[in-house]
């Protein structure tokens, strides 16, 4: 390197370029991580295919075709896996490895970091939705509800993303990175099995009523109602909204940069 190489020429890149760089990097790292990919795509697809085939063989008495029952639930599961589990784990380790502090000393403003993260989440969720819908259509899925149903489903997914992202950030704020990893995976598994997200609440017997207060069941209900009947499930949206406010409040209280 010759004389003058380091002559100062300071300055921040334009915000849109910073946000794009941040979103691209976060998406790339998320997709590169094997465990995250398992969580984001493989488990939901397995649940969809396995569940559909098993339900057909057992000839369960469901109100709808098995694939029509499972697809909205699996989409809900995918939203939860990315917005809650992946985000919580990634954030825990970003703090642990000083990444958040490093970015805090760079020209990237907080709003840029936040926009980058949101964009990365939405990109990954879009990818998940494409894969899951393609597999579901291959299994004979016929979404009801028409265009209106699709719009309501997207709104529910966005609200669900806010809700679970807030809860995920709160978890990452409250615990150490390793503990966040364990807790986020455990909560994901528990909600997947017993949280009314993949399967409709009426398959849970007496728990049907209380379950509707969980954010997982609310997101599942909202997507099912949208993609079956093209309606917005007011109770489910309300429950998600309450959890979203709670999550955002907790996250802003517990979140630490370093």
């Amino acid at each position: 390197m010759s004389q003058g190489t380091f002559t100062p020429a300071p300055g921040a890149a334009p915000l849109h370029r910073q946000v794009r760089a941040q979103a691209a990097m976060e998406t790339k790292l998320l997709l590169r991580n094997g465990e995250q990919l398992l969580l984001a795509v493989v488990i939901p697809v397995l649940a969809l295919v396995g569940g559909t085939l098993a339900a057909r063989r057992l000839d369960l008495d469901l109100a709808h075709e098995p694939v029509d029952v499972l697809t909205p639930g699996v989409l809900a599961l995918a939203v939860m896996s990315t917005a809650f589990t992946s985000l919580a784990i990634a954030t825990g380790f970003e703090r642990r490895y000083g990444l958040l502090k490093r970015l805090g000393a760079s020209p990237l403003p907080r709003i840029g970091l936040l926009l980058g993260k949101v964009l990365a989440l939405l990109l990954v969720q879009l990818l998940q939705a494409v894969v899951i819908c393609a597999v579901a259509l291959g299994l004979g899925w016929r979404p009801g509800g028409g265009v209106l149903g699709a719009v309501v489903a997207v709104l529910a997914a966005l609200l669900g993303t806010c809700t679970f992202a807030g809860l995920g950030l709160a978890l990452a704020g409250a615990l150490r990175a390793e503990a966040t990893l364990a807790a986020a995976n455990l909560i994901y598994l528990l909600l997947m099995m017993g949280g009314g997200i993949v399967l409709p609440r009426d398959t849970y017997g007496a728990a049907e009523g209380p379950l509707q207060l969980l954010p997982s069941a609310a997101l599942g209900d909202a997507l099912r109602t949208a993609l079956w009947d093209g309606r917005a499930d007011a109770v489910a949206f309300l429950v998600l909204l309450v959890w979203a406010v709670l999550g955002a409040g907790l996250a802003s209280r517990l979140f630490k940069w370093e």
Binding site: P10, R32, F93, R96, R102
Partner: peptide, 26 residues
């Protein structure tokens, strides 16, 4: 330059450097 850390756990060195570079104008 922080005393320790300052990158994603799974990022490669050159990739991280390029990212920080992308946040600057020149």
């Amino acid at each position: 330059m922080l005393q320790a850390g300052g990158a994603w756990s799974g990022v490669r060195a050159e990739e991280m450097l390029r990212h920080i570079a992308a946040l600057h104008a020149h």
